[in-house]
Design a protein around this nucleic acid. Structure first.
Lengths: 153, 153
DNA sequence: GTGCGTGCAAATTCTTTGCAATGCA
DNA sequence: TGCATTGCAAAGAATTTGCACGCAC
């Protein structure tokens, strides 16, 4: 996530950039993994010690609704949040270390067409999340899914 | 979901088929939408009046872990459960009426390859959910997303 | 009969809300 | 300065756990 871009986005929408929100943005920007509310609180307090958990919840709702952050869904829960690149994108979660990366090249046309044929639905949106082993864990020989598994298949 | 197949699956694994579990299975089998724990409780009490909410939670955990049911993730929450067809499959949620259908033809090879190239991850699993308008809602001219939106994009 | 499974109630989380005080624009 | 935003504490939801009893196998 690009913190600079994100703050611009807030300003552009006339939303106040408070110290609290800046701290949450910084925490999300620094994290390589998805973070839960408590983790964000802890991480962001380095920059803004008086930050409260309530504010973290409110800031996350805001950032997610603006598309600046994205929720990810793991078997550990669905409250985890990562910073998002601009534009359409999806997450890949590392099954070894929990690291989250993003990718944007999701050509779902053929899959959506197949699903439409099979179900009779007119498809208009997709929610996609991949899981695997990140480059670093591959290098370290980590192969097993230890920490996280994605929901569904 | 095929309730008969599901009960066989339980027996095959040596798991007791109690009246409570049977009632939950029936409720899931009858529903065309995803159901939350309370809804399942209510629906299943027709068949098993003394059923408790705790048991519903426990039964759902069991069924999901066996792949007999699947959780779906909407903006309304992530506790919703549908019965699953056997084998690998994904859900399509109707944005008009909430109905859930399943499809199995998900050829993610090219998408996963693209993601692997972009992120350096070795992809091993995917979690996919589609949203759109079901055939019936299309026929009724329902076009807008009223009730549900999927998380993410 | 033997345990696994259950229901209830209580305990834990997790998340949201009310409201006075604060601080960004 | 004005009003959005915050922090705290308290309310509310959602989910889990402990334990004695009941029932499927």
């Amino acid at each position: 996530m690009d913190v600079g871009k994100a703050t611009q986005e807030l300003r552009a929408r006339g939303i106040r950039l408070t110290r609290q929100r800046a701290a949450v943005l910084t925490a999300l920007g620094r994290a390589e993994r998805g973070l839960g509310p408590e983790e964000i609180l802890y991480a962001a307090r380095g920059e803004c010690p008086e930050l409260g958990l309530t504010t973290v919840y409110r800031a996350l709702d805001l950032l997610v609704s603006l598309g600046i952050a994205r929720r990810i869904h793991t078997s550990e829960g669905c409250a985890t949040v990562v910073g998002a690149k601009a534009g359409h994108g999806h997450s890949v979660v590392c099954l070894g270390c929990g690291r989250v990366a993003e990718f944007s090249s999701c050509d779902m046309v053929s899959v959506e067409k197949a699903a439409a044929t099979e179900t009779g639905f007119k498809i208009s949106a997709h929610s996609l999340e991949l899981a695997g082993i990140c480059a670093e864990c591959q290098a370290n020989g980590v192969t097993a899914a230890v920490v996280l598994t994605v929901h569904g298949d």
